[in-house]
Amino acid sequence: MSVLLPLIGEHLLIVLIATAVAVILGLVLGVTAYWLRPAASIIIWFAEALQTIPSLALLALLMIIFGLGNTTIIVGLVLYALLPIVRNTHTGLSTVSPAIRDAARGMGMSRLQRLLKVELPLAFPLVFSGIKISVVNSLSIAVMGVLIGAGGLGYPIYRGIQTQNFAGIMRGAIPVMLMAILFDIVMSNIEKRLVKRAK
């Protein structure tokens, strides 16, 4: 266990950094897609395309640019995490009821004020659900980091595969899955509360 703890910490840290970057980038892209309607399909197509690229291929390509190490896996996770966040931000903003949007406009709010005070808060439950999907996916994909010299729980798993050691694989796999399930449950609960509050 004492060997595992630092690995779990590193795994989490990689995922959290990647998620934080992805949230910022995803919100920017999502809002851009909402404000610039012609850009919407391009942005979403781009995020979809990123997710279509096989993960090993994407990581290997990124390694050519960023070299071995944690940076590469973080960049890879960010690119994978974009789609759910961008798509949900865009959908959330676009489905704010026109009446509310009109009311905000009628009160003399500027575009930015409307976004920050009305539209984003209303879209937030959906944005959050996108973030949840990203986090859960990232926890699992981060395992592949070991193949491009990054740290985290991929290491014991890969060692286990190389030595054909069942228990070894499980030592790395179980914490990954538990974290994924835990994040899913906790964030789903928060999501439910957010949705309820929004009603």
């Binding site: 699992s140 994909i141 796999a173």
Partner: peptide
């Protein structure tokens, strides 16, 4: 759904064994 959260690497490793 739980099976789906098993990382691909893990699944292949276990299947290999």
């Amino acid at each position: 759904g739980v099976i789906q959260t098993i990382p691909g690497l893990v699944m292949l490793g276990l299947a290999l064994i």
